[in-house]
């Protein structure tokens, strides 16, 4: 198996699916970059270079640079999906959903239900999320919890390159609308990624570490933080189970409840703001379904209830850190230094 970056893994998934199915198209702002100009036609390949190289392979018919009009092109992707294409639209930063949310939550998410089951809307909306880039308040949010709230949408949060490729392939083949969250601080992260095509089913959590003392349930980039903390603590005899739910909708409640019950001590790590986020959602689930198995109150490690700050000093304080996760594990296990 070759080492590939998160960026390459997603790019490879897109290319392989476009080769497999002529109905798959990609569209978005600067998805190639260069349309209409007199210089390089595949100038950017998306803001992070994920789609670079698709234009020469598939042409402008299937790699479509759009104007900066998110309502227009996200809506077009939804309409195209409802009529026979399988579009992968790039909503550059999830923060921009404010200008096109209607097309996602009132249109794409509801067609199947409102139309009595007769609509199929296989659209994928790729979007960047997360803090750590000094990108400030309007380019750093998580917001996956907002999409998770909407019935009819599926939400994927790949935590490493292997996950990214398999979940993207599943997203494209899935017949429901999928919002695919890529953490902007992870594009250069490398990992083993098979060359061949493979799909990771939605709603099946990945248990990345197994332990006896605590269960850490983490989302997206935070899975890596949780793994690092678990590895560190294991050296002093505190062993943790780490759960990566992979998708927040559908959510693998079974694995979450089983692993929570096994240790009875739970930490939930979510980079999103603390109110109505995945941490509160998962905590409520465990309290309702496995309260009698808990040996200590659940700890949530999240960002604070504040916009993402610009200053590096402040942003570093804002993001849930490995130190905070470690402290939470020590707290629920009662094992301090």
């Amino acid at each position: 198996m070759a080492k590939k970056s998160y960026r390459q893994a997603i790019s490879e998934a897109l290319r392989q699916e476009m080769e497999r199915d002529h109905r798959v198209i990609v569209l978005g702002e600067d998805i190639a970059g260069g349309a209409g100009g007199d210089a390089e036609q595949d100038a950017w390949g998306g803001p992070m270079g994920v789609t670079k190289g698709l234009l020469p392979l598939f042409g402008r018919e299937r790699v479509i640079d759009t104007p900066i009009t998110e309502s227009g092109f996200i809506g077009a992707a939804v309409g195209a999906a409802a009529t026979g294409l399988r579009p992968v639209a790039d909503l550059m930063f999830v923060d921009f959903m404010g200008v096109c949310f209607d097309q996602i939550f009132n249109q794409a998410a509801k067609f199947k239900y409102m139309f009595g089951g007769k609509a199929t809307t296989p659209v994928v909306i790729r979007t960047m999320y997360g803090a750590g880039f000094r990108a400030a308040s309007q380019h750093s949010q998580c917001l996956y919890n907002i999409f998770t709230h909407i019935p009819g949408l599926k939400v994927a949060l790949p935590s490493n390159p292997y996950e990214a490729k398999g979940l993207m392939i599943q997203a494209i083949r899935d017949d429901d609308p999928v919002i695919f969250f890529e953490h902007k601080a992870m594009y250069d992260m490398e990992g083993e990624v098979p060359d061949e095509s493979y799909a990771i089913p939605f709603g099946q959590a990945n248990v990345t570490r197994e332990g006896d003392d605590a269960t850490i349930i983490a989302f997206g980039r935070m899975v890596n933080f949780a793994n690092t903390v678990a590895d560190k603590l294991s050296k002093e005899g505190i062993t943790c189970t780490v759960v990566d739910p992979r998708t927040t909708s559908p959510l693998d409640t079974e694995t979450i409840l089983e692993t929570a019950a096994e240790t009875g001590r739970v930490v939930v790590v979510d980079e999103a703001h603390p109110r109505c986020n995945m941490a509160t959602d998962v905590s409520a689930l465990i309290c309702q379904e496995a309260f009698d198995k808990l040996k200590a109150p659940i700890k949530m490690v999240t960002a604070p209830h504040a916009p993402v700050p610009f200053s590096a000093a402040l942003e570093d304080l804002y993001i849930p850190s490995m130190d905070k996760i470690e402290a939470a594990v020590r707290s629920v296990t009662g094992k301090s230094h």
């Binding site: 309502s71 077009a76 309409g79 195209a80 009529t83 294409l85 097309q103 409102m114 139309f115 007769k118």
Partner: peptide, 28 residues
């Protein structure tokens, strides 16, 4: 709505339809 008749739906959102129609036209 009846997609089998090419009817993509009445729409409760004022201005909701035109982007969808761009998508249907893109499919065509």
């Amino acid at each position: 709505a009846d997609l089998s008749k090419g009817m993509m739906g009445a729409n409760g959102i004022v201005g909701g339809g035109p982007p969808l129609i761009c998508g249907a036209a893109l499919t065509a």
